[in-house]
Simulated assay, not measured.
Amino acid sequence: MDRTPITLSGSSQAALVDRDIAHIARVMRPSLHGDLGGPILPAGYWRKRLYQLLDAGSLSHAQLCTVDSLLLQLDQYEAEPQLAWDALAPATAALFPPPYPASASHPA
């Protein structure tokens, strides 16, 4: 079976690029901050995705500005030291104080 590449019109291609940029802008930062195990996807992954968009060519001025902004965010993320889990505030610091003084009697 021969496969023929699908060609998209300029407006369809621009819409796909817009969606890809919007997706990266929405999920990149949460992915970098990750969870206790570290980043879900590393900065290198996001940088590669953004460079692929640039290499595809024919991005509009607004698209180029957004990709550039995202690359700058990656640079800033990589330049700042990431806090180790041990350096974060202990969980007890986030707890609310009791609604009554410890010495006051209260109904159980």
Rank of each mutant, 00 (worst) to 15 (best):
L74N: 05
S9Y: 09
L88S: 08
I40P: 01
L36P: 02
V27F: 07
P39S: 15
D86K: 13
G34V: 06
A14V: 05
A22Y: 01
H23Y: 12
L83P: 04
Q73D: 15
E80Q: 14
R19Y: 05
I6Y: 02
D2F: 05
A94N: 09
S11K: 07
Y77H: 13
P81N: 05
I6M: 08
A102V: 11
Y100K: 07
P97G: 04
R3Q: 12
Y77D: 08
D55C: 07
T4S: 05
L54I: 09
I40W: 03
L83N: 07
L64H: 10
D55T: 04
I21C: 03
D75N: 13
V17I: 04
P42V: 00
V67G: 03
P81K: 05
S60N: 06
A102L: 11
L54R: 12
L32G: 07
I21R: 01
P97C: 07
L64W: 02
A62F: 08
W46E: 03
L41Y: 08
L54T: 05
L64P: 08
P39C: 09
T66E: 12
Y51I: 13
P98Q: 11
A15Y: 04
T4P: 00
Q73N: 07
D55L: 15
R19L: 07
Q76C: 03
A94Y: 14
V27E: 00
L8V: 00
L36I: 08
A15D: 12
I21W: 01
Q82R: 14
Y51D: 15
P99E: 08
H106C: 05
R3D: 14
K48A: 15
L59E: 00
Y45V: 13
S103Y: 05
A89P: 02
H23C: 03
I6V: 14
V17N: 07
D35Y: 00
P97R: 07
Y51P: 01
G10R: 10
D86C: 11
T4N: 02
D2N: 11
Q76I: 12
L70P: 02
K48V: 12
Q63C: 11
I40D: 02
S31V: 03
A14W: 05
A93P: 03
A87H: 08
L41E: 06
